[in-house]
């Protein structure tokens, strides 16, 4: 069993540094998804890849404070619920599902309403994708941690 003490500090430092850079890039991909290739799914997958790197590089126990295993399903559900809530909200205000014209944000122009609604959608998708991918990874390795 690999413990914290026999992981090389160089490896830990490299994994932590690379994971932070990947996380910053993932957030950039999510919030910049309107203008450039990318969006919620790709950014969420990048955020999940950063957590994988931490899980592999410094072990499951010591990467828990970055992304606890027990909250993955909860975070994924929150992402899906936010996505569905925005879609149903636009139905409630007279539009179709995810019809951004009908987003009830008073005092904003049509472009600004689209902007904020799409940003919320992208953040929800990114959160759901990251949490579910990390959850699948933890589930795949669960048997080896309970033996």
């Amino acid at each position: 069993m690999i413990t914290h003490s026999n992981i090389s500090p160089i490896l830990r430092f490299a994994c932590r540094s690379a994971a932070r850079i990947i996380q910053v890039f993932g957030v950039y991909v999510i919030v910049h998804g309107h203008y450039s290739p990318g969006g919620g799914f790709q950014g969420g997958a990048l955020l999940a890849a950063a957590v994988f790197l931490l899980r592999i590089g410094e072990g499951r126990e010591h990467s828990q404070r970055d992304m606890p295993s027990r909250v993955t399903l909860l975070l994924g559900s929150i992402g899906v619920l936010v996505y569905g809530a925005v879609g149903l909200l636009t139905i409630a205000t007279g539009g179709r599902f995810l019809d951004y014209d009908a987003v009830p944000l008073p005092g904003l122009s049509l472009d600004d309403r689209h902007y904020w609604a799409i940003l919320v959608i992208e953040l929800a998708v990114g959160l759901a994708v990251m949490a579910i991918l990390v959850g699948i990874f933890d589930r795949l390795l669960q048997r080896f941690h309970h033996d």
Partner: peptide
């Protein structure tokens, strides 16, 4: 966009899985 998804998912996440 497709290339980005393929790089992130195909070369990254699926390999780890």
């Amino acid at each position: 966009d497709v290339g980005f998804t393929e790089a992130v998912v195909g070369a990254g996440v699926v390999g780890v899985y």
